[in-house]
């Protein structure tokens, strides 16, 4: 009887550990799965990809908004900081950063940007860096993550114009020469 109690207790304790590990690892696993999907599509880190308008055929990221244009840059700051430059339209626009555990640790919108084009230098945790210009410096809590630009489509007739503005944005590593 005692031996069965130990077995049941061991099973439950191990189950609790697997439960916690699964829940904690889930967001990171989703980010890794997304990066694999990106690689399957021939996409690289530290490059901004401008997504076409979302439709029912868009099946990479769940619950997308069909009223927004998205640009995505999966970043890796382990070797160099990343500079993001983006033209800001006269409609809702935002640039947001998500850490490797999916936390939204930074967001800035069209009403908050200090300049147009927006100029942001994203640096890794606890690294020294040189700011190549007057870029606003943001520190990521993880070396890997995702930068996401959203542009609101306020009017169907403006899609072409907003798409042009969307495509002027870029993200690229900054050679530090340290």
């Amino acid at each position: 009887m005692k031996r069965w109690s130990y077995r049941i207790l061991a099973t439950l304790a191990l189950a609790a550990a697997f439960h916690v590990l699964t829940v904690m690892a889930f967001p990171r696993a989703i980010m890794v799965a997304l990066s694999w999907k990106g690689k399957d599509l021939g996409q690289s880190s530290n490059v901004l990809y401008h997504q076409p308008r979302v439709t029912a055929d868009s099946r990479v990221v769940v619950r997308p908004s069909p009223d927004l244009l998205y640009s995505v840059c999966a970043y890796d700051l382990s070797k160099a900081p990343l500079r993001i430059s983006a033209s800001v339209p006269d409609t809702y626009w935002s640039l947001s950063f998500f850490a490797s555990n999916t936390d939204n640790f930074f967001v800035i919108n069209d009403r908050e940007v200090q300049a147009n084009p927006a100029d942001i230098l994203l640096v890794g945790p606890a690294v020294s860096y040189k700011n190549p210009g007057n870029a606003q410096v943001v520190t990521s809590p993880s070396s890997r993550g995702v930068a996401l630009i959203r542009i609101l489509i306020t009017d169907e007739n403006r899609i072409e114009e907003l798409t042009k503005i969307q495509r002027q944005a870029s993200c690229s590593p900054v050679d530090q020469g340290l």
Binding site: M24, F26, V62, R63, S96, T102, V107, L148
Partner: peptide, 15 residues
């Protein structure tokens, strides 16, 4: 951790 996992499941990249 539960909310973070749920957001990753149904609202990834929520602001």
């Amino acid at each position: 951790m539960y909310l973070r996992a749920t957001i990753a499941r149904i609202a990834l990249f929520a602001l």
